[in-house]
Design a protein around this nucleic acid. Sequence first.
DNA 1: CCCTTTCTAAGTACGGTGTACGTAGAAGAC
DNA 2: GTCTTCTACGTACACCGTACTTAGAAAGGG
Lengths: 244, 244
Amino acid sequence: MYVSRLAGEVITEMTKPAAPAMIWLRPERTGRGPEPAHSRAAIAAAAITLADAEGLDAVSMRKVATALGAGTMSLYNYVPKKEHLFDLMLDAVVGEFSLPDEPSGDPRADLAALAREELAAMRRHAWLAPLSLTRPSMGPNALRVTEFFLAALADSAWDGGTKMELFAQLNGFVCQFAEWERNAAGGSGAQWQADMVAYLTGVITEGRYPHLAQALGGGGAPPPDVDAVFARSLDRLLTMIVGE
Amino acid sequence: MYVSRLAGEVITEMTKPAAPAMIWLRPERTGRGPEPAHSRAAIAAAAITLADAEGLDAVSMRKVATALGAGTMSLYNYVPKKEHLFDLMLDAVVGEFSLPDEPSGDPRADLAALAREELAAMRRHAWLAPLSLTRPSMGPNALRVTEFFLAALADSAWDGGTKMELFAQLNGFVCQFAEWERNAAGGSGAQWQADMVAYLTGVITEGRYPHLAQALGGGGAPPPDVDAVFARSLDRLLTMIVGE
DNA sequence: CCCTTTCTAAGTACGGTGTACGTAGAAGAC
DNA sequence: GTCTTCTACGTACACCGTACTTAGAAAGGG
């Protein structure tokens, strides 16, 4: 018995690549032991509430666990690595998107709706843009959105790989816009903004960067309507993606 | 004396916004006390060497300080916050770019050269893409590059704000490509890649995401020439930026 | 039915982190 | 020469992710 168990372990170590490091490869419930006291959705919700209130840096295993009313180390039964907590958060937020089940047949409208949904989520959750720029995010809800994007481009001439790349580019664009918008609105604190202004005006008056001076000076006052700026930039990008 | 000093402090606290939180607003040398034992360039170099060798997470104030042969807390005279260390690293790497002093008059060629220079830097430094996606980076070298970008687009019809946005978009594109390339090459470890394959094949064979299956299945084998993929994607983006 | 297996829950502890604070001394300014 | 302002550095604190361990609960096989 001892020998066979040992052999079994050796075999699993050889065949299985250790343990699945990706959280979506672990079933939420194996059906054997006692019923888990928390669901992935509840864990993600707790972490999201925390991040919304105190910022992404405040999301620690300890704080999430206590917010759930659990011991710190109990959380590791659900989330073996902290990264996985971020994966849960990302996918939960993507699950908030309200998208039609089928694309409408107008790719430009569909992709614009998707982009707007993403921007809205990033406005609700300040931590979303930086986080989703860092991590790939391939959870079930992200897959659904990816499928929607690809379905909208079903009649496009791009090959599959290019479509995936364009999807990434669209996401990246929305993330960058959301961060720009937040900074422009003073989201990084008055201190940071004041410093930035002082620094850039100093650089500009130095006179060594004429083009920069012109680019920043021309639009010195922030444009009145950020949504219009978003729409224009998005339009440029969508022309690249769907043509016309 | 005590009173006046206290009054002075109160005044500085009221007039000055505390202390400049941005590192580029602090002069490297004030010229008063003893000469600093380390330069910003040396500090950045030490941090970069560390990040290249052991990854960005290994860059800690302690390790950088000991690499410089300094006490941990001495480093805080140069770099009051850890974020600033990242700023130094980013700007030092941007300083590696070899760009012509003046744009050639062919915007497409100039921007392509810039993008290629960025990609090369990201290939040299695995931590560059994730880091520069997260932080704005407005150091002196970054300003030089921004000026080059704007100079190349001097005859463009875009307004200043749009040009800045397009610059961000170009940078974002290169970062994303660099990360995609690294992941495709197995840069995140064999474990992660194996899990990703297992997960996606599972999802695909499930049959609920036909478009995703087609997009991933069509290009199942990675394209032979990543540089060609980069060139094609870059071309798409440059057409959006410079037109034609 | 019991017993074995496999799960969950939780505590303790370790090595690491950023950095506030205080002290000691060196070099320019008057 | 004295004052002011800088640099250098050690100590200390709160917090982090998580390896390891123990105790107990629920399902599966006989």
